[in-house]
Design a protein around this nucleic acid. Structure first.
Length: 148
DNA sequence: GCCAACGTTGGC
DNA sequence: GCCAACGTTGGC
């Protein structure tokens, strides 16, 4: 079982939205490195849900991968901002996963806390200028987060 | 609102 | 294939 971190701006999609929806397709990722991580995700993997572009940015809960290797439906929707004219259903360019709500932390772990707990090498999300929206989390890092 | 970081685009 | 220009992300 692997651990991941997935970022979202809460004004776009928040942990509260996921709690309400119970599960969602993690669509809209249009960065190849992030997509490659999405492709690697397996059913039952755990994702830390991170709120970006808010005060304070923080890990706010947990989600579990319940389906993997899904074609992101927004790539085929001409009305979506994520539409990709060069992608076809036969050879989809953007894959993602479906995640299910697990838990909303009673106390989010803020970015400033994360910076005191981990080095940028241990956990790239604390690295200045980091923009990657999907990244793996080392098991030891995950355990330290979960035991908090 | 500013701006550093960095991915993408497109001319050559 | 290089790289300057440009656009986006996201912390502050």
């Amino acid at each position: 079982m692997n651990y991941w971190l997935i970022k979202s701006e809460p004004s776009d999609y928040s942990i509260e939205d996921l709690e309400r929806d119970r599960a969602t397709i993690w669509d809209g990722v249009r960065n190849y490195q992030a997509r490659n991580f999405l492709r690697e995700m397996q059913v039952s993997d755990i994702a830390f849900f991170y709120h970006s572009n808010v005060k304070p940015p923080a890990i706010v809960g947990l989600a579990q991968v319940i389906e993997n290797q899904l074609a992101d439906p927004t790539q085929f929707d001409p009305n979506s901002r994520y539409f990709d004219a060069k992608s076809t259903p036969e050879a989809p360019r953007w894959q993602t996963v479906k995640v299910e709500f697990m838990e909303k932390f009673s106390e989010p772990i803020s970015l400033s806390q994360l910076k005191t707990m981990f080095t940028p090498e241990e956990f790239p999300v604390v690295k200045k200028g980091n923009r990657l929206s999907v990244m793996p989390v080392h098991p030891e890092v995950a355990q330290r987060l979960l035991s908090k």
